[in-house]
Amino acid sequence: MPITKPSTNSDIPLIRLERVSRFFRPDKPALFDVSFDIARGEFLYITGASGAGKSTLLKLIHLSEPPDTGAVFVNGHDVATLRAGAVSVLRRSMGVVFQDFHLIGDLTVGANIGLSLEVLGVSPSFIARRIREVLAEVGLEDMEDEIAGSLSGGEQQRVAVARALAPRPQLILADEPTGSLDAYSADFILDLLETVNGNGATVVVATHDRMLMAARPHRILALDAGRLVGMSPRQKAASGHGQPDAGVKEVG
């Protein structure tokens, strides 16, 4: 089975972490003995205070960093057994959004979005069409030729989301996507992520914003000092829409 193709076996989670630890200092783990699954189509919050390990966890899921111990499985494949090229291919099925946007300030909006499409090896005409489509989805239809660095924070985050959505990924990873935005822009971004989730993509959002999680309830995974300290039960339908959260229960 190609590593980027969804498994036909619905029992296989999209992402599985088994007893994963990551150390930047021997005495202070960034993550310690973390295990959980992310089902297909799920909307998941990863929460915790600053330094709890949220970003490290996202990097492990995105395969940007390897675990020091334990295993990460994507589509049932142990990523430790994959070659570097295969890891790159796997990343193409993931869209990433960061608090600080990670846009190239001196490139146009279109060129920034095009980056995630170029690596797929698709034609320039397809890229141009898809950029227009995705810009319409994020409400920036007329901004294709604007220089990304000249946009407001909210607009830049929309461009970042557009870049993440452009290749139609199976999984969206968002690290504090609303952290530097005003309430209106934050709402817009969350609406977008929920819409994408409603269309079948799995969405993982790292956030410390309790109000956000309360306003848009989904499954929550809580970290503290690198340890998994709580996990709310998975909702019935993993489409992510609307079910009130059953509350976070302690684990471990």
């Binding site: 995105h62 940007s64 570097a84 090229g85 790159s88 291919v89 796997l90 990343r91 193409r92 099925s93 993931m94 990433v96 990670h102 846009l103 190239i104 920034n112 980056l115 995630s116 170029e118 690596v119 797929l120 870049r163 290749p167």
Partner: peptide
């Protein structure tokens, strides 16, 4: 960095 994030090979 962005290219690597979006799945570009080395």
């Amino acid at each position: 960095a962005v290219l690597r994030l979006v799945g570009a090979t080395e």
